[in-house]
Amino acid sequence: MNRKNWPLRIFGVFAVIFLLLPTVIIIPMSFSSGRTLKFPPPGYSIRWYENLFTSPLWTDAAWSSIQIGILAAILATVLGTIAALGLTRGEFPAKGLIQAIVLSPIIIPLVIIAIGMFSVFVRWRIAGSLMALVVAHTVLAIPFVVVNVMASLRTLDRNLELAAANLGANPVRAFRFVTLPLIAPGVMAGALFAFITSWDEIVVAIFLTSPTLRTLPVVMWGQIRTEVDPTIAAAATILTVITTIVFTVTTILQTRGNTTT
């Protein structure tokens, strides 16, 4: 880039501030000593974190979110990895359409998915249960697993599998001991994306949760609309920190996946 591009660089600085400001600003506010959300805070304390970690409303919700996230991630990873193999290596008519259907939970507006699932799950008497949320989040997470696993499958050298087969491995063994280790970074990245999808999901959760089973975003949603105390900022910070950790691990996995294959 030459010197004449300095306006573009200044623009870049502003754009980065615009992108990061909302994520970053919450952190100092969550450590505020005041009762209202002001920036800069009048002083610093950890009282809102104490409030967060001792209030059953928040801790129960965090526990539910973790359980739902892990179960949905496992289910989506199994279904998505198998489907990615089918999509990459299968040969069948209307392949584009089938792939579009598998990926469509990303593009269909969430409110429609939410009311549809709510309507059906109420009739099946599972609305408000842990399983209902796991199933719903699995639907939303499958596309992310499929996309990630397909990306690793495309760079995989099929000759290694053929070699295993020539040496007498049956297809299942060849998959278990050759294919799976090679696509493991992609599968793992998919699993983490799946967890984050569930961990951050709010629209479907608003409909499928019940007074006795609420996820962290649902409690936050309720609190944002009724109260203004900085406990919400503390909860938001926790949500963001966990998302960022998982995201960083995912990025490292993806980078490693790209270099080893």
């Binding site: 992108l19 709010i202 998302t243 995201f247």
Partner: peptide, 13 residues
Amino acid sequence: IPFWSSILVRTYA
């Protein structure tokens, strides 16, 4: 980073 952090958190911010 914002792409993967929660929509609710960012809206709240």
